[in-house]
Simulated scan of single mutants.
Amino acid sequence: MKIKLSMLGLLVVLFIVGCGETPYYGKVDNTPYATKECLKELASGAEIDHKNKIDKIVVYKKKRVLYAYKDGKVVETFRISLGANGGADAGNKVKAGDYRTPEGTYSIVRKKCDARLYRSLMISYPSEADKARARKRGLNPGGYITIHGQPKWNADGRGDEYTLSRDWTEGCMAVPNFAMDKLWAAVEKGVEIEIHA
Rank of each mutant, 00 (worst) to 15 (best):
G26H: 01
V28G: 03
P126Q: 05
M122N: 06
A174E: 03
I108Y: 06
V12L: 14
D55N: 10
P126H: 01
K2R: 15
Y60R: 08
V59G: 04
E170M: 11
D160H: 05
A134R: 01
C19H: 14
L5F: 09
G97L: 09
E192I: 12
K112L: 06
L8F: 14
R79W: 06
L66A: 10
I57H: 12
T77R: 13
H196D: 04
S107V: 15
P151R: 00
F15S: 07
K131E: 12
Y162S: 05
G45Q: 14
G45R: 07
I57V: 13
S127F: 09
V28Y: 15
Y67H: 13
V28Q: 13
C38N: 01
M173Q: 10
E128D: 13
S6T: 14
V75H: 03
D71R: 08
S107D: 11
F78T: 01
L11Y: 11
D181H: 06
D156T: 08
A132S: 11
G97A: 08
D167W: 13
K182M: 14
V58P: 02
Y99G: 04
K182E: 15
A115M: 08
K95N: 11
V94T: 05
S127T: 15
V13P: 07
E41W: 04
Y24R: 11
T35D: 00
D49W: 02
I193L: 05
D156H: 04
N140M: 08
I54C: 03
D181M: 04
P23S: 03
I80Q: 00
G83A: 08
K189I: 14
D130R: 05
C19R: 03
S127L: 02
D89G: 13
I108K: 01
M122F: 10
N154R: 11
T31R: 10
G72R: 09
A129F: 12
G104P: 02
K152M: 14
C113A: 06
A129E: 15
L39C: 01
R116E: 14
I57Y: 11
Y25Q: 09
P32R: 02
A134E: 10
A197Q: 12
K152G: 02
K112V: 15
Y118D: 09
V12C: 09
I147G: 05
E21I: 11
I54Q: 00
R135L: 08
L164R: 07
W168Y: 09
V75K: 13
D160E: 05
N140Y: 05
G171W: 03
N85V: 05
A129T: 10
E188T: 08
E37M: 14
S120H: 04
K70A: 15
H50W: 14
T35P: 03
I195H: 11
Y118Q: 06
G72T: 02
Y24G: 15
F78P: 02
S124A: 10
E188C: 00
I3S: 13
G171C: 11
G18D: 12
V59Y: 00
A155K: 07
R119G: 02
G171L: 04
S120M: 05
A185R: 13
V12A: 12
N30E: 13
A179C: 11
G86C: 02
G104S: 00
R110D: 12
V187Y: 01
R133H: 11
P23K: 05
G157E: 11
T35Y: 03
V65R: 15
Y67S: 10
R110K: 15
K4I: 14
I195T: 03
K95D: 06
E76M: 07
